[in-house]
Amino acid sequence: MSTTERRTMTLNLTEAEMRVLEALAEKKDLSKTAVLRQALRLYQLIEHRTSQGERLVLEDDRLAKKAEVMVL
């Protein structure tokens, strides 16, 4: 399969999940499919980096807060 060929799948979401997906699509000016593609790419990136021993940390300079995010 080429890198640009598409495959189709059916996705079943709860009402809450769909509301979040729609809100993200609206906020980011993206289609819902594009939002899910973004999510998959970022999930793969995080999985790749954490599997090499790196940690995912969220930091707020203004509040001097730092928290490690657990990725399952």
């Binding site: 593609r37 790419r41 970022l42």
Partner: peptide
């Protein structure tokens, strides 16, 4: 790269 980067110019800030 096609994920993880958002616009900074104010008119489109936060959009990928």
């Amino acid at each position: 790269k096609t994920a993880g980067y958002d616009a900074r110019v104010s008119s489109e800030a936060g959009k990928p």
